[in-house]
Write a protein that binds this DNA or RNA. Structure first.
Lengths: 200, 200
DNA sequence: TCGATTCCGTACATCGAGTTCAATAACTTT
DNA sequence: AAAGTTATTGAACTCGATGTACGGAATCGA
């Protein structure tokens, strides 16, 4: 922390661009967004954009890094409060709650061709979170048939799949319910469904 | 069947374009391919391209439909020969074998930003195959906590995840091994790893 | 206030998408 | 094999978006 304060103009420019990106994703989908759209919406000059980012993809990555910082904060907050036991897969609930409060953006992104790149980068980011959390909680490396790398990606992909389904007309489920589905799927697969019911 | 024979010129044009697409995906990745690249490689005129497809994406979809037809054929062949028992998730092995014989293309596609759209469409296609096969083999709808839609997407996504991992430096595994991992993951999740070992 | 940095905005070069059209080539049918 | 149909060609053109350049204006930190 304690990054030397950045010029206010820089902060303003970047934050305007981030907002513009989010808005435009909702309106026309990521793929259709042009640089012109972004600078018009953010109300900044063309050359100013290129002074900060080379791409709209680079802008996106910057945005996703912010999200990552936010998620880490959420996770740390929760694990600090709840010391009862080894906590598992905290990243899932943190993400799901973020998704819930940004329905429109995820709706316009997940599952649609125009949003695949966005999802791809979010997935990468979540995988980083997951790797840290999973690596030392599942101590069956070595004898395992399924390599650890696969476990991480498997879990992340399952989560994204659920978000996909959730945002496509099933928003009446709560983040906690979806989180439960997630844990069942990655731990037990699709078998033994009957043992699990909503305790709500 | 018995579509009235199509003009040979049409067949030729489309097949040249299909080949060009595959080659170029290997060489520069899907996203970077321009129409100009395609028509140069296929050696056809510009206006001819637009007489057949509006997009490179439409060309891609046409390609994937061909792949689907091929996979269905493989699946039918296998299930016809092996009548012993209810066969489950045949689509996975069929796809994995196709992947194995097109390593270069999948390597250049799966897991890379430039290939996300391609993967997305393949995933959609596999989901169609999976839906048919899964729907009547897992009769726990109704009481289940996990909705059927989710099961289908979960399975497909898991398969894609494995392909991703497989193509990234683990090609020494056989299609059958990866297929076994797939079945374990979707059926039992990441628990009970020790019960499963390679029987070769 | 002052010096440094950022932003502006216009202009410009470049590239790729997609359309048009008349001439030509290739195919199918009889 | 001839006739009629259909596909392909290639060049020219419009359009929109990308990315760069640069001098002057605005805003910052101190």
């Amino acid at each position: 922390m304690a990054d030397k304060k950045e010029d206010r103009r820089i902060q303003r420019t970047r934050s305007m661009l981030h907002e513009a990106l989010m808005d435009l994703i909702v309106e026309k989908g990521y793929a259709a967004i042009t640089i012109q759209d972004l600078i018009d919406r953010a109300n900044i000059g063309r050359s100013t954009f290129y002074a900060h980012f080379t791409d709209k993809e680079e802008l996106l990555l910057d945005n996703i890094n912010q999200l990552k910082a936010f998620l880490v904060e959420q996770i740390d907050k929760r694990t600090a409060a709840d010391r009862t036991e080894a906590v598992r897969f905290e990243f899932s609930l943190a993400l799901l709650q973020h998704v819930q409060s940004h329905k429109l953006m995820y709706r316009a992104t997940v599952g649609k061709p125009s949003g695949t790149i966005v999802v791809h980068h979010i997935q990468q980011m979540i995988a980083e979170l997951a790797r840290d959390e999973i690596t030392d909680r599942l101590p069956f490396e070595g004898t395992a048939f399924i390599p650890r790398d696969v476990v991480v990606e498997f879990a992340v992909n399952t989560l994204v799949t659920l978000v996909n389904w959730w945002m496509r007309g099933n928003t009446h489920h709560s983040a906690i319910e979806v989180d439960q589905m997630f844990h069942q799927l990655i731990l037990s697969g699709i078998k033994q469904q009957r043992e699990h019911t909503l305790t709500e």
